[in-house]
């Protein structure tokens, strides 16, 4: 799941080196992913009206379903 977000984020930002994803275990099998990007790329990973963020979360939900877990994506 971490790799999925890394792949998408690195593909759409201007500074791929600035992309960092950390994975943390939350309560009751919840996985929390934190996505950090360079300040100037923040708009790109969120998108107009959060459209990009929403799309990433939707795809992440498919990945989580396949793994039998739940996941939350936070954009820092």
């Amino acid at each position: 799941m971490k790799e999925l977000i890394e792949y998408i984020a690195k593909s759409i930002v201007t500074t791929p080196e600035g992309v960092k994803v950390t994975e943390e275990a939350g309560e009751r099998g919840l996985v929390v992913l934190r996505l950090e990007v360079a300040p100037e790329d923040k708009g790109r990973v969120i998108g107009r009206q959060g459209r990009v963020a929403e799309a990433m979360r939707t795809l992440l939900r498919v990945a989580a379903t396949k793994e039998g877990t739940r996941v939350r994506l936070e954009i820092m």
């Binding site: 998408i8 593909s11 759409i12 459209r51 990009v52 929403e54 799309a55 990433m56 939707t58 795809l59 939900r61 498919v62 379903t65 396949k66």
Partner: peptide, 26 residues
Amino acid sequence: DSGILIGRRGQTLACLQYVVRLVVSE
């Protein structure tokens, strides 16, 4: 896995297409 890729009212599929377009255009 067609079912989970389509999602409710095709919403997951729409998101998948959006991300593919985004990455390909970039």
